[in-house]
Nucleic acid binder design. Structure first.
Length: 324
DNA sequence: AAACTCCTCAACCGCGACGCT
DNA sequence: CAGCGTCGCGGTTGAGGAGTT
């Protein structure tokens, strides 16, 4: 089947819309309503293809479009729905009135996806990332840091104040890396890297006691056998291991009832959502805090028992129907 | 102030789904 | 049922604004 020519092939205008074009499109739709997108451009006096007009209307000109930053509640809803629906942006957009699929998709790609990756969570599966290649950038950074440390003069002369600042920053960064790396199933290479870094960290701490590692991390370094065995009693509660409670999406106490999720919907008694307590708040609070606080909450033993993804613990009739 | 890099988001493209004949 | 036209979706791109050096 021969496809209709794309916009460019007929000498139709492409690219950003001018206010005049917007006005024409708005006027036409207000006067005639939505009909055939194919026929609209000619009828409205626009030198655009119908597809372009449709997109412009849906993503920008529609009167019910909500502009501005996504609220924390919207962010939670997106994370929640994405864990169930995947990249079904239009389906997700149906639960966020005033938001377009394009807007949600952009927001996901520019903010949420990165946030999850930073946290060591696979943005597609919403599970902790356990693959080696996912850890590669961190391992490279670890290796570079190690090299950096080995090259430090530590001679106590004029460079000292600067050195301390750099070391403090390094320490902070290494704490993050450590916690990230510890959440990944260790390979012999990783174990070796971590072992040598542990030694390096100990040396730094001895030389620069004011930059002690946090008790949490020290406990972690001490408690985690780098060969992959985690003493059972030291296993931290994980985001995914917490008892599943019957809570609504607004686990954040600051969110008032009128802002509650659209997923919860009109019939909240029927559509309550099961989630690990506070998990979404943790996720959406990430921007202001150290990502590794969350990363450290993942299992450290590369356990063979797969951790449940949110989708496995979320029960929402409407969404399940949508999936079906 | 200029050059450069990074980030955001509007818009495009290709494809599958759907509906009509 | 097949063929065709249109619509809607998801992935991707690139212009331009913001931030940094």
């Amino acid at each position: 089947m021969r496809r209709p020519p794309s916009c460019g092939e007929k000498g139709l205008k492409k690219g950003p819309w001018t206010p005049e074009e917007d006005h024409k499109l708005m006027n036409y739709i207000q006067n005639h309503g939505l009909g055939s997108w194919r026929a609209l451009p000619e009828l409205a006096g626009l030198n655009r293809c119908g597809k372009s007009c449709r997109l412009r209307w849906i993503n920008y000109l529609r009167p019910d479009i909500k502009r501005g930053k996504f609220s924390q509640q919207e962010e939670q809803t997106i994370l929640q729905l994405h864990s169930i629906l995947g990249n079904k942006w239009s389906a997700i957009a149906k639960h966020l009135p005033g938001r377009t699929d394009n807007e949600i998709k952009n927001f996901w790609n520019t903010h949420l996806r990165k946030k999850l990756i930073q946290m060591g969570i696979d943005p597609m599966t919403h599970r902790p990332r356990t693959d080696f290649f996912a850890a590669l950038p961190q391992l490279i950074a670890l290796a570079n840091l190690r090299q950096l440390i080995e090259q430090q003069p530590w001679d106590g002369h004029t460079t000292r104040p600067q050195t301390e600042v750099v070391q403090a920053a390094n320490l902070q960064y290494m704490q993050s890396l450590f916690q990230s790396a510890a959440s990944i199933a260790p390979s012999p290479t990783i174990i070796s890297s971590l072992n040598s870094l542990t030694t390096d960290l100990e040396q730094i701490c001895l030389l620069s006691p004011q930059h002690m590692l946090s008790p949490t991390l020290l406990d972690r370094i001490g408690g985690v056998d780098l060969a992959g065995q985690v003493p059972h009693n030291q296993m931290t509660n994980t985001l995914f291991d917490q008892p599943v409670g019957n809570i609504n999406l607004s686990s954040d106490n600051n969110v008032n009832s009128s802002e509650r999720s659209h997923v919860e919907g009109e019939n909240s008694s029927q559509k309550s959502v099961l989630l690990p307590e506070n998990s979404l708040s943790l996720l959406t609070d990430m921007s202001a805090s150290n990502p590794c606080n969350i990363i450290s909450a993942s299992k450290c033993d590369g356990s063979s028992t797969p951790l449940p993804s949110w989708s496995e613990i979320i029960l929402d009739e409407e969404i399940m129907r949508e999936i079906a």
